[in-house]
Simulated scan of single mutants.
Amino acid sequence: MTVRERCSVRTTSTGELIVVSGASTGIGAATARELASRGYHVLAGVRRDADADAIRAKCIEPVMLDITIGEHIEALAARIADDPQERALRAVINNAGIEINAPIEVLPLDTWRQQFEVNLFGHIRVIQALLPALRKSRGRVVNISSVGAVATLPIYGAYPGSKAAFESASDALRREVAPQGIQVVIIQSGGVKTPMAAKSGPLSLKLSQGMSKEHTRLYGALISSTVSFQSSFLRRAMTADQAAKKITKIVTTKRPRTRYSLGTDAAFTLPMARFLPARLMDRVVPR
């Protein structure tokens, strides 16, 4: 019996389709499993065969999905359109992402482009391809952003910058497709224990080793202190499984808000960024 056939058995949901990109590890994998446990048929986007084997389970169908490759996105759209049980596409969770942090002066422009290609343009490609299916089902787009899009730490320019652009695009999209019955939700995530987050600090330190003596003098201490703070915080952050339960609730609630925070740091920082003057935030955030 195939995964598709097994998922025809209804549990707490109607067995509808939900796409989760970046489902190899972390929040994406945990969310795929949580949604599958509730009876949704999850099309879990992965980039490697090994990741497909790891995530494959009842109601989880791995699909090859590098969101920077047009052929992968076209194949995903065709898979949804040709679903053998003609199930509706209930939601698309745009979760895939990469994070590479360094001071703006020293982070190579190609690395900036790489992050925007994945964290912004890749998701736009997915949304463009799947809007017809979402229009038919009156479904939902759920875009995973970051608290950094609103309150950005020093040396964290490129990743939050891509997320801020993604949020602006999401606001425009929400206003464009609301008359069509499609909902658009932004989740502003704070610290979550994931492989991507765990690699972020060591990667920044590795990049700093290639800096010139002058850049080391200017930014070395700042990089070390920021990475140390982030690493310390992540030890107390929520787990991917905890995040997945909250995301699943947001995905399945009948009348979602336009924005949600995820994590205690996001719940604290977002209102602070909204109400404090920018100059005061400039003093508070680096501390």
Rank of each mutant, 00 (worst) to 15 (best):
R257G: 06
A240L: 06
T258H: 10
Q230S: 13
F275P: 02
R255A: 09
V227D: 02
L270R: 03
Q230Y: 14
L262D: 03
M272F: 10
K254V: 09
S228M: 08
P277F: 06
D241Y: 09
S231F: 07
I247A: 04
T226S: 11
V285M: 06
P271D: 06
R274V: 04
K245T: 09
R255Y: 07
A266D: 02
S228G: 13
Y260R: 00
K254L: 11
I250V: 14
D282I: 00
I247H: 03
L262H: 04
Q242H: 06
R255T: 12
Q230H: 12
R274S: 14
Y260G: 00
A273S: 15
D282L: 03
K245M: 11
D265T: 06
R236N: 13
F229G: 12
M281N: 06
F229V: 08
L276S: 05
K254N: 08
I247D: 03
F233P: 01
A266Y: 02
A267N: 11
S231I: 12
A273M: 09
L276W: 01
G263C: 05
L280T: 13
R257K: 15
T269M: 15
K254Q: 12
Y260A: 01
R279G: 10
Q230N: 14
A267F: 05
K246F: 05
T248V: 08
S224I: 08
S225R: 14
R279Y: 10
A243Y: 02
R257N: 11
S225I: 10
V251H: 04
F275I: 15
L262G: 01
T248G: 03
V251P: 00
T248L: 00
L276G: 04
V285F: 04
A267I: 02
R255K: 13
R259P: 00
P271H: 05
S228L: 07
